[in-house]
Computed example of a mutant assay.
Amino acid sequence: MYENPNPNSVVVRAKHAGDIVGASTCEGAGYNEYGYVLVATDAAADGRGWMREEAVVQI
Rank of each mutant, 00 (worst) to 15 (best):
Y31N: 10
A40Y: 03
A44E: 12
K15G: 04
A14R: 10
G22E: 12
A43E: 15
G49N: 08
C26V: 13
S24L: 09
A43H: 08
N6K: 04
G47A: 12
Y31F: 14
V12S: 08
A44Y: 00
Y34F: 12
T25N: 15
N6C: 09
G49W: 01
Y36I: 04
N6V: 04
A45I: 11
R13G: 07
K15R: 09
W50T: 09
A55C: 09
Q58M: 07
V57M: 13
K15V: 14
V11F: 00
P5W: 00
G22L: 10
E54F: 08
E3M: 05
D46N: 15
V12W: 02
G28E: 11
Y2D: 02
R13H: 09
V10Y: 00
V11L: 13
D19K: 07
G28C: 08
C26F: 14
R48Q: 10
I20C: 04
D46R: 05
P7D: 05
T25Q: 13
T41D: 12
W50F: 09
N6I: 02
A23L: 14
V56N: 03
A45N: 11
R52E: 09
V12L: 08
V37F: 06
A45W: 00
A29T: 10
M51F: 01
S24G: 11
G18P: 11
V10F: 00
A14K: 08
Y31L: 02
A55P: 00
A45H: 06
V39W: 00
P5Y: 02
P5R: 00
V11M: 07
N4C: 01
Y34L: 13
A29M: 10
C26D: 15
V11I: 15
N32C: 05
N6T: 02
I20Q: 11
A45P: 06
G30M: 10
R48A: 07
H16T: 13
I59K: 04
P7M: 01
H16C: 05
E53S: 12
V11Q: 10
V12D: 10
A43T: 06
M1A: 11
G35Y: 05
P5A: 03
T41E: 12
A14Q: 12
M1F: 02
R48C: 06
K15N: 11
L38F: 03
V57N: 11
G47E: 14
G22Y: 02
Y2L: 07
V37K: 09
A40F: 03
W50S: 09
I20V: 15
A23R: 13
L38Y: 02
S9V: 02
C26P: 07
V57I: 14
R48H: 01
G22K: 05
G18Q: 13
C26I: 13
P7I: 09
G49R: 01
V57L: 14
A17W: 03
A29Q: 13
D46E: 15
D19F: 07
A43I: 01
A44T: 07
Y2V: 00
S9W: 01
V57Q: 14
V57C: 10
D46P: 06
E33G: 09
G30F: 04
A55R: 11
S9E: 05
M51Q: 02
D19P: 06
A44K: 01
G28T: 15
V57W: 09
G28I: 12
E33L: 13
E53D: 08
Y2Q: 05
V10A: 04
Q58C: 03
P5V: 01
